[in-house]
């Protein structure tokens, strides 16, 4: 059964806009006065005051690579993050771990691992897809630079941001 929505019948006061306009002006004036009397504070003066201490655990900032408790780079160059990355910000060139290396059984490691921070959309897909838990989104958000080259985080920079992270994956440990 169709429902007919009745148009509301407006009173004369509503039709001539005037009381409504006055009401609106009163509301905006109320807000203005509250701000002027400093009864309400809403804006944070950004560079001086920051929200950093209140960032939640799940905050998605800049992605970074981590090393494990043996200072081994966790990344094994499977390139899953490179393929999943929606804006294609990640470039990985793998290399074989040479014979004689302590971690030769891992077989692969990244020769080049670049994340273009101009492209990165901080979606966290790389973190989610990584089977080795080698890439994490940290809480850094103010990534700036004066050139495009500067905005590309290379392997060194990524490990610098990421640092060391212990636990979680034990696959390559001596113990196993």
């Amino acid at each position: 059964m169709p429902i007919v929505v009745q148009r509301p019948r407006l009173t004369i006061a509503e039709k001539c806009y005037f009381p409504a306009i006055m009401k609106g002006l009163r509301i905006t004036l109320g807000h203005a006065i509250r701000i002027l009397l400093r009864k309400k504070k809403v804006t944070m003066q950004y560079p001086e005051a920051k929200w950093d201490d209140h960032l939640p655990e799940h905050y998605r900032g800049a992605p970074a690579l981590v090393t494990d408790e043996h200072d081994r780079e966790r990344c094994v160059s499977c390139q899953l993050c490179e393929f999943i990355c929606p804006p294609r910000a990640i470039t990985i060139i793998p290399e074989e771990i040479p014979a004689g290396d302590e971690w030769q059984k891992v077989e692969k490691r990244p020769k080049i691992f670049d994340i273009d921070m101009i492209r990165c959309i901080y979606c966290g897909m790389c973190e989610e897809v990584c089977p080795e838990q080698a890439i994490f989104l940290r809480k850094d958000y103010a990534i700036t630079g004066v050139s495009r080259e500067e905005m590309v985080h290379d392997k060194k920079k990524l490990y610098e941001i990421g640092g060391r992270r212990e636990g979680l994956v034990n696959k390559w440990n001596e113990l196993k």
Partner: peptide, 8 residues
């Protein structure tokens, strides 16, 4: 406009 919209 800022003070009306609770901004700075």
């Amino acid at each position: 406009s800022a003070i009306i919209q609770d901004r700075v």
